[in-house]
Every structure is written in C-alpha cells, then in structure tokens.
Design a protein around this nucleic acid. Structure first.
Lengths: 351, 351
DNA sequence: CCACATCATGGGAACGTTACCGCGAATGCT
DNA sequence: AGCATTCGCGGTAACGTTCCCATGATGTGG
C-alpha cells in the first residue's frame, strides 16, 4: 500500500472541480431531479476523476438510515447458522445493505451486549435468534427486529422466520413409513425447549393420522450435541427389542452421535439400525453411511428474514410468522424394509 | 415491538436533563478530563434515565473512525472461513469494533464490489482473502488492509496472516513417517496455485532431510473438492503398487473424497490405505474412520489478522508476514505400520 | 409586453458528536 | 494581598451529506 493518507475527496471537492455548488453536485450524483444533462455529466466526470465515494456515515447521519443491518446468531461456526448468515448477507447486499454479524454463544449477556453495539452503530434493523427471554431494552426506541428460529415464537409481538417443523417431521415420518419403519424411536433435545415440544406434537399428529398410538414410541432425551446423541442411542440400544431399530433424531449432530453409538456396540447402520437426522449439516454427507436427514433451508431463512426486516423497517405493520419448508436428503442411513414385512398399519404406505 | 418511533435521545437531551451544556455532558460521558465528580454523576444519571446511547455514526463522522472493520472471505459457509470470521469477530469485539462480513465466492468482481461497499461504509480497515490480482483501487486513498491466506503473498507490500504450510507439512510427514509411511503419495490442488507450490516445496525439503528422493513420490492433482479428491484417489489406486498405500491430501475435502474412492473400490481405510488430510474441518470428525489431519488454526488466524489490522490502522509501519502454526489432529485414518517393517531409511523415525 | 409558471442552481441549515478556545472562579505561590 | 496557574464549564465550529427554500433565468400564455 503505497502513498498513504490522502484525504478522501468529498462532494465539495467534486463540486469545485465541476464548477458547481455542492447542492448541484449532490443532485447530479443522486441521479434524478431537475438537472441539465450537461451539468450532470460534468459532475459525474469530476466525481470519477477525483475518485469520489459517497460517505455512508454522513448519509446515515443526515437521513437516519445507516444502510446496515445486524445479525445476531449463536455461532457463525455452526454450519446451519453460517448458512443463515450467507443467505442474509446475499439478500442484504442485493438491496445495497451491509451486514454486521455477531455470535452470541447462546449467552444472554453476550446477546445483550451485541444488541447494544448494534443500536449504537445505528443499524436500520436486526435479525436475532433470541436467547434471552427479555427484550424490553430492544423495544424502547423501536429498533426494527425480526427473530429467527423456533425459539422466536415465545415473543408474540415480533415477526419471525423459521423452518416448518411440522412439515419437516411429516416429511421424515412419511419417508420412514415408506421404508417400512412404522414406529421409529425418537432422540429429542432437552425438555422445556420449544423446538422439542413442536417436534413431538407433529409426531403425535402424524401417528394419530396413521392410527398408531404415539405412546408406543420410545423416546430418549439428550443435549443437542454428538455426545448427547451417542448417550441417548446407547440407552435406546440397551432396551430390549425385536428386529430392526429405526431412530428419528431431532438434530444431525445427535444423529451422528447415534451412529457412533451403533458402531460402538458392534452393530451396523443401516443393516441393524436406521437413523434419520434433522438439520442438513454438511458433515452428514461424509459420515459413513451418509446420513439421511431432513434439511432445514438455512439460506432461505436468512434471505426471508432480511425481507421481513425490510418490511418491518418500512413500517409495514403486517407482522408475520413465516415457516420455510424443509427438504428430505436421502443418503444411506435408512434400511429399506418396505418389502420385507407386510404393512400392518392402515394407511402406512402413503407418500 | 410496542410503542414505535420515539426519537432516540441525543447528548443534548442528556445535557438538558442534567442541567449542563452538551460539551460538559460529552466530557462526562467520555470519562476523563476536568470534571467534578458531582457533575459527572448527574450526567451519567441523566443519560441512563433517558436511555441515551452514543450515536456511532456521528462519532465516526466527527473522529474519522467508524469503529467498523470489513472482512471479505470467499464463503462464510466454508467451515475454515467461518472459523476465521469467528476469530476476527471476537477479537474485534474485544476492541469495541464491529465486523462487516462479505462473501466473494472467489469472484474478483464480487470482491471489488464488496471492497467498494466497505470504503463507502468508511470502515477503519479491511481483512481480505485476495482473489483478484489487482488492488490498485484499494491503494488509492489508503484503506488499511491485511490480507489473509496463502494467496496473500503475491502482494509484497501488504501485511498478511496465514497458516504455516511448511510447518504443517513437516508435522504431517513426521507423523506419517512415525507410523511407518516413508514415501506417501500426494494429492494436491491445481497447478499455478501458490499453496500448491509451497506444499510441494516443504515436502521436498522434508524428503531430502531424510535422504529420500522426492521424485519417487506419486502425485495426483485435482480440484480442491470432494470430487477432485475422489478422482485423484481413483487414479492413484489404478497405479500398480505393493502393500499399503499412504496418501497426504492437501485439503480435507479432497481427503474425504479420497476416502470415498477407497470405499468405492472395495478397499478399507485404514487397513489398506492410510489418508492424512489438511485443514481440520469438522466433517473429518464424523467420517468413518475419523480423518487424521493437520488442522489450520482458522480462529487464531482471524484474531491475528485483526491485530495486524489495528497496527496498520495506527500507522505502525512494521509490515509483517505472519505464519500461524498448525496442529495435528489424530483420528483413525492412518494405519500404524511402524512395527511391521524395519526402518530402511536413515533418520526416518524421528519425531 | 407583462404576469406567471417552470426550471436549474446556489445558499444555508440540520443530523449528533467532539475538539478547541475562552471565560470566570478558585486555588496556589511568593 | 496580588498575581499566576489551574480547573470546570459553556459556546462554537466542523465532520459530509441532503433537504428545503430562495433566486434568477427562461419559457409560456394572454
């Protein structure tokens, strides 16, 4: 980087060089109103000549719009959230906005700090995966906000975007049923998490539609981690059972952990145990066997969140709850038992 | 979000409420100079009472420091770059700065656009994994800049932070040798990439130190992707060979692809083929067997890049080239042959 | 040919903050 | 006591932009 610290040219420099006032220069550069073509061209030429670049700080100050959005997610290192961030980034960029990204590590305090930073930076709005239960601060001077993820629904007044868990569960169970797994065991996240309740409710509904008593499903809880899944699967394997075991895990990490547990006890997936995940993280592709999973549309969620946020910023008060559809990614972790045993449950075979 | 659009309080509101001038209020809030404790307390009280939050746009305007940094990486969705972003984020936050994150998708045009956006946003500096060959624009008004990654070294005038490829290769080869793999095959990225040349040179040096002729090493090239690795491995397996095959891949994705290729032809890793990767992406942990790899310190790189950038911003002209050490992650993809065959190469066993 | 509308342009204020300067009071020193 | 120095505080300018209003020029219609 050679010659350092030349003062950045301002619109006044442009105006002087073009021989007009700064008002005229500003009008010319803004594009539209009431300007001779000749003057406009002269101003534009002057601008490129001096290398003028509009100062967005000043613009933001004058207009009250900084052109920046905030994104507060648990961890950018988590592939799902990286996907969300990428979608938000792209959508924001398409609208000429920039994204300030923060990771909260599921820590309410960090979250609060980051939100304060965002308010001070005068972002036009924020997208948050809420960790804390208390967002009164946020409310005070009305920072436009869109929440993201299933934890968002604790807040009735805030628009939110998330994945359609009911549809996802339905998709997963339909697939399991089609493969001949009528009553899969469940590995779920910790109790008192909204996502868990929603997942479970969808499973119940699906079972009832198929005339299956939900109570017969084995359920194990665990942390949303590889280790959590491993332990839950170990408990599942300890239970007496006949024949093939199918498992629907509420999270890919848990599913991968479950896969490890299967290997730990000398069994084989998918020969002895079938595993279905939920998330769509890339690691599932490289596991052996590849993890069949219901993939959340992280990128789409990010994009839609930004769009919702723009609505919010423009005071379009249509406060909405958006659920994005998930998609089945079929890989190798499910055995196909549909031919082996006769379908004993009415309506089980439908897709 | 209930009562919307109350005007955000300014320092003037605070001053009025505290019964002082805005200068005094500013001084009180800035912390230090020449203020009675009593006045300071009154101002601080007033500030919290009205919910004052300093407007960083205005501060940036006045001071010329926006308190924001830019980060332009190929893809936030790529786990390595997500790691880098996380490190940069945390380090920046610790210094009270925020990070504007952009993904370029290895597209020079997108990169240029993002850099322009960053300049307009008046970031104090930028961290870039350079894609383009031409950064004259960047130079013009001296946006402080630190480059990141091995492609950075094309630019002699710009400070850079990257991983220590020489050390990484040494680490990997030492480990291979210790496990009894004296002359591993190499799966490398495309020619005319700087990283490839560096990798190869380090391999040569290591070989020569061990009195091994580098020319005997089999080398296959491929794209830095799973598919690239798969194809390269397939070619490697087509070649006639005796006994166990060991492979050092220049990238974890390629290594995972190689693993698939091994499975494709009915062989077993690590029984028949040993594979060593380079990157440390999480997916390697869930592959079967777990991928032994040399992990790049993505997070540390991000942190150091921010630190370097701060130096750059403060005109500390010590332009530096920093190489961060890598770390071996031992998992299951390497067979231990050290006991089986006598060491025929002098000095091979050292660690 | 004059009244009036239209239009391109310039002047100035304002966004919120901080740095600088100046003023009056209080304090220290001889 | 008298003078110098320090100290707390207020006023004002400036950062770069855009918006509003005024002004003068030009065009239009009666």
């Amino acid at each position: 980087m050679g010659q350092s610290r030349t003062r950045r040219p301002t619109i006044i420099d442009v105006a002087e060089r073009a021989g007009v006032s700064k008002s005229t220069a500003a009008r010319a550069l803004a594009g539209s109103s009431n300007i001779t073509d000749e003057t406009r061209e002269r101003v534009v030429a002057a601008a490129t000549a001096v290398g003028y670049e509009r100062n967005h700080l000043a613009v933001g100050m004058r207009s009250g719009r900084s052109g920046m959005l905030g994104l507060v997610i648990p961890d950018i290192t988590n592939p799902f959230w990286a996907d969300v961030a990428r979608g938000a980034q792209d959508r924001a960029a398409r609208a000429g906005a920039s994204l300030l990204v923060f990771s909260s590590d599921w820590d309410p305090e960090a979250e609060a700090t980051h939100l304060k930073t965002l308010r001070r930076a005068r972002v036009d709005g924020a997208i948050v995966n809420p960790v804390s239960d208390n967002f009164d601060d946020l409310d005070r001077f009305g920072l436009p906000c869109v929440f993201i993820g299933s934890s968002a629904e604790r807040f009735p007044d805030v628009s939110s975007v998330g994945s359609d868990i009911a549809q996802a569960v339905r998709l997963g169970l339909d697939h399991l049923v089609a493969k001949g797994h009528m009553a899969p065991a469940l590995i779920l996240g910790p109790k008192s998490r909204l996502a868990r309740a929603r997942f479970l409710r969808a499973v119940h509904e699906h079972c009832i539609e198929r005339d299956v008593d939900p109570a017969i499903l084995a359920i194990e809880d665990g942390e949303y981690t590889v280790e959590g899944g491993r332990l839950a699967m170990r408990r599942l394997l300890d239970q007496p059972r006949v024949g093939h075991l199918a498992v629907f895990a509420a999270n890919d990490m848990m599913a991968l952990g479950a896969m490890m547990a299967v290997r730990d006890v000398g069994l084989d997936c998918p020969r002895d145990v079938s595993i279905l995940g939920f998330d769509g993280i890339p690691s599932g592709e490289f596991a052996w066997p590849g993890l069949t999973t219901v993939a959340k549309p992280g990128r789409d969620i990010g994009e839609r969140a930004v769009e919702s946020l723009f609505d919010e910023i423009q005071h379009k008060p249509e406060h909405r709850r958006i659920y994005m559809p998930c998609r089945l990614m079929e890989r190798g972790s499910l055995a196909d038992l549909s031919a082996e045993s006769p379908k004993r449950v009415a309506g089980a075979g439908r897709v």
